[in-house]
């Protein structure tokens, strides 16, 4: 992947597929480190499946036998000296509280650090594709933060769906302004 924001898009799609109702995407930049957290309340995974998703030749899909999302994120993190962890509780083990949290850590000064890139496009793409999900996005740097919570937008929008073009354009503009303010 050319930018980390594409890895974020890709891995967040796993949360969508896990039928999550709430997905949090959080990036924290501090002391030369970037911590990425993607947390969902989807169906979760068994311990064995968690082990398997790190393996590039594992997938639950049947159309093709290679699932590369998590391994690519792992590679991007490890090549900077960081790494990833996955914590998951399956719906089967706990019907009340289940879901998956993927945490990746990157050393931003490392030569092989992939730039974060266009997070705004990633967030708007995710909301456009899954407007029924509640998305929370936070990007915290030492200069400030950019945040968006679809619950707050929905309160104002009422019946207007989040994938309405004007709403998507508003979200895009709002986030771009947010990023300009912490440049």
């Amino acid at each position: 992947m050319k930018e980390l924001s594409l890895n974020v898009l890709d891995v967040a799609m796993n949360s969508v597929k896990a039928r999550a109702e709430n997905i949090l995407i959080k990036l924290i930049e501090a002391d030369g480190r970037l911590t990425l957290i993607i947390e969902d309340d989807g169906c979760g995974m068994s311990e064995e499946t968690v082990k398997n998703v790190m393996n590039p030749f594992y997938t639950t899909r049947t159309t093709r036998s290679v699932g590369m999302g998590v391994p690519l994120l792992k590679l991007a993190a490890e090549q900077t000296g960081g790494g990833i962890t996955i914590a998951s509780v399956s719906e089967k083990d706990n019907p009340e509280k289940h879901g998956t949290t993927v945490t990746a850590e990157f050393y931003m000064n490392h030569f092989d650090f992939t730039p974060v890139g266009d997070m705004v496009s990633t967030v708007t793409t995710l909301i456009q594709g899954s407007p029924h999900i509640e998305w929370r996005f936070e990007h915290i740097t030492d200069k400030g933060s950019v945040e968006l919570d679809t619950r707050e937008l929905r309160e104002i929008l009422g019946d207007v769906p989040l994938d309405n073009y004007e709403v998507i354009k508003w979200i895009e503009g709002y986030l771009r302004e947010g990023y300009e303010s912490i440049e």
């Binding site: 594409l6 898009l9 890709d10 799609m13 699932g67 590369m68 690519l72 496009s121 793409t125 073009y165």
Partner: peptide, 23 residues
Amino acid sequence: GMATCGIAAGARPVLNAFVEGVS
């Protein structure tokens, strides 16, 4: 198509071009 293969090949700007262009 927005799986890993599509995203890595550049599906995100293609999708956005359709969303924007159609409107």
